[in-house]
Design a binder for these strands. Structure first.
Lengths: 102, 102
DNA sequence: TCGATTAATCGCGATATAAAGATATATGCC
DNA sequence: GGCATATATCTTTATATCGCGATTAATCGA
């Protein structure tokens, strides 16, 4: 069971439309990031997410860090790239917890 | 189905621990507000919620307004008092929507 | 080693949110 | 009417969040 503080971080992480968009895009990488040169099995490259949002690199990097601190996504560094993917288990646990809490 | 904007308001409404506390207290008024003079069937009186949070009257009034705009609670004015209660249907719809979205 | 690429971090200005006190409004009681 | 109570609204101050450009750090290729 996650702590109240962790739950707080998770809800705050979702309280921004761009971060919810990112989570949504990562649900179907092959649909939203079909043009990625690297295998999508690594996850989605940070730069591709930057492009898709239209926001600056630093802004998106921060959004990704917030999602990662909340536990919703993980990153895997390969060479000079950083690939992000969803943590389905954590997302499900969050939904279950929210259902009990609310 | 609620709009994206409504979903945004709902998540933001939850992104504050005091507002989640209030929703929680309203789940079992008889447990948390047993000392209320008025029937709990009206809902819980704003002033009682003020007391329980320990925050100022104006601050709590604002929190209640945010929860109400999000649709999570309703108010019923009786005399000089305003009674708040949960909208279980909306809360369930929110959870369902979040489950689809995430 | 040098230059290019990727992405995290830092610093700043702008905007949003939170909290409180003061005020306004409405109701109830005498 | 006059005063008390309950609560929303307004104003101000403080803090948090957002977004950007610049910098830094790491990796890669020539």
């Amino acid at each position: 069971m996650m702590s109240n503080h962790e739950l707080d971080e998770m809800i705050k992480a979702l309280a921004h439309p761009v971060r919810r968009d990112i989570l949504d895009w990562l649900k179907q990488p092959e649909q939203y990031f079909a043009d990625q040169e690297h295998p999508l099995s690594f996850g989605v490259c940070a730069g591709k997410i930057d492009q898709k949002t239209g926001l600056s690199q630093s802004t998106v990097s921060n959004h990704l860090a917030i999602l990662q601190r909340a536990g919703f996504i993980s990153s895997k560094k390969v060479g000079q790239w950083n690939f992000f993917s969803r943590n389905e288990v954590v997302i499900q646990a969050f939904l279950t917890r929210l259902q009990q809490q609310l």
